[in-house]
């Protein structure tokens, strides 16, 4: 009888411990009415070169003066005209497709 009572006591004790553990594990972390402590604002990380600078405009090379540009176009046209004249004088596919020596497009 004494042993039976001891067994029952251990069983109840075990059940109680299990119930407490179960309740603790299923309890919500915080009650909805609880006031949350104000968290510090996350620090903004400094700009990274590979993300922020990519949006910045690509540095444009200084523009060639218009007189220089017109001279370059004229030289290109003169060279192309000479190439076309060679083709018209002796029409061959090789002459037509010959690479231009004009620095304007190279």
């Amino acid at each position: 009888m004494y042993m039976l009572l001891m067994g029952l006591c251990f069983t109840f004790f075990g059940l109680a411990v299990t119930a407490v553990a179960f309740a603790a594990s299923t309890r919500p972390n915080s009650s909805p009415s609880a006031v949350q402590p104000e968290l510090p604002a996350p620090k903004v990380s400094p700009a990274r070169f590979f993300s922020d600078q990519a949006a910045s405009p690509i540095p444009v090379p200084p523009q060639v003066p218009i007189e220089v540009l017109l001279q370059q176009i004229e030289n290109h046209i003169r060279l192309e005209q000479a190439a076309a004249e060679s083709f018209v004088a002796y029409p061959t596919q090789a002459l037509l497709h010959s690479k231009t020596s004009s620095p304007f497009v190279n």
Binding site: I77, E80, Q81, A83, A84, E85, F87, V88, L96, H97, T100
Partner: peptide, 10 residues
């Protein structure tokens, strides 16, 4: 003919 050849090359 000149313009045609030049145009084709361009």
């Amino acid at each position: 003919q000149l313009v045609q050849a030049m145009w084709m090359r361009e």
